[in-house]
Design a protein around this nucleic acid. Structure first.
Lengths: 233, 233
DNA sequence: TCAAAAGTGTTTCCCCTACACCCATGG
DNA sequence: CCATGGGTGTAGGGGAAACACTTTTGA
């Protein structure tokens, strides 16, 4: 029995769900968190974390709750993506889902201990298993949004710890975009933006020259100066 | 009694609504269609066209239906905007709304005859009355989206008839952006994009030199080449 | 011939791009 | 001293921006 069914197992009215595509970068690979479904439909199939929006919580709050049921981290970047409202998305009946995507630094995230490893796991976005419902479409849509948004906002910074090197930042961009970037041009442009603060600290990670550590001058994800195609002429 | 209430007038479960901000350009002004509410809550207040999503229609279809209840035009550009899911948006109880925006050419649109003029009307976006619910926020959000999107897509073309002059096209951009553009630069850039087709026809509108008429080489709204801030370096 | 909108080129400047070598450290 | 990643500058090209006059028509 699900919250979508009445005592006869038949669907009774609309259901509003949220689904969250949580991304992280681990080992130079962009990954998304999937959970294995415990109930029908799609029992045993991998799916995005998600569930029904409660009567006394906002949709945003439901998305955040679903995220926190799987991971133990606060202050995640979470953004609404799109609402999928087709008729037969869910074999149980009428379910509309509001999709979100979220970005998190690998080192700060931790899957909840009550999850068995076989029940929740990170998958590289380039090698996804079959997903339940239309979740593949949601992941693809989220990736498209992410790749667009990295061009004019600072979402790419969300994958990094509080202090980071310019090489790490560049790596984040390269993984999201799936292409190599020129080191000198990347550094010049990033520093020109005026959104990085030099901590005057160094981090020695091996037997190389230590790298300079930066933090964000701006606390949140911000929109960068747009170089519009039309404006200004 | 509304679809959101049971026999006692109390709310029973979620309601899913759609609201549509329909824009047009008339007389050099960007306008949005508002309807006067006939029932409580907010009876007599201006609001966006909208209503409850039926059990057997997709959310997109519901938005289209609401649009067609007010106007008689097919083939409108309609795009999902955002889903507003806060708890107390609607005094009746829990209603989540999926907001859309739509763009239409002034000459092709016609308000349905069964609407009294006092019940549905175009309002300049810079001089809106008080709006029901959070509809002001929806309009503002739609305007922001529109102003962004005009920079990298051809949404600005949706306000024009099938054949149009470059001056008309420029006027559409100027109204949306709220700023004057340079005529020579605008024309050069538009023609460079390769998305306009010269009809070899002229239109004489007064006692001035007749203007050349163009149509779109591309049938739909397309995404233009992005000049990203980051990619390619 | 006049009013009113259509139509047309050039120069300047800045940003994006491409590209290769030295530096600092640990082993 | 060597391997490894950190860090730096410049020259050339292309697109954006600023800017004003001639053309065509109807009245």
């Amino acid at each position: 029995m699900t919250p979508l069914s009445n005592a006869n197992g038949h669907f009774t009215g609309h259901g509003i769900a949220v689904d969250v595509a949580l991304f992280t970068i681990q080992g130079g690979t962009l990954k998304v968190l999937l959970v294995k479904r415990q109930q029908a439909p799609y029992r045993g199939t991998w799916a995005l974390p998600g569930g029904i929006v409660g009567p006394d919580e906002s949709v945003d709050a439901a998305a955040l709750r679903e995220l926190q049921e799987e991971t133990s981290i606060g202050n995640i970047y979470l953004e609404q993506l799109y609402t999928f409202g087709e008729l037969h998305r869910d074999p149980r009946g009428r379910v509309i889902t509001v999709a979100y995507y979220a970005l998190v630094n690998w080192q700060q995230v931790e899957l909840r201990a009550h999850q068995r490893v076989s029940d929740a796991s990170w998958f590289p976005v380039r090698r996804l298993p079959n997903l339940a419902f239309d979740h593949r479409r949601i992941v693809d849509y989220a990736l498209e949004r992410l790749r667009n948004k990295i061009n004019y906002t600072t979402v790419g910074f969300q994958f990094l710890p509080r202090q980071f090197t310019l090489t790490e930042l560049q790596g984040s961009y390269e993984v999201i975009l799936g292409q190599r970037l020129d080191k000198r041009n990347f550094r010049r442009k990033m520093l020109q933006l005026g959104i990085l603060k030099d901590t005057r600290q160094l981090r020695a990670t091996g037997r190389q020259r230590p790298a300079r550590l930066y933090t964000f001058a701006e606390p949140k994800v911000i929109k960068l100066q747009e170089k519009g195609i039309i404006v200004p002429f």
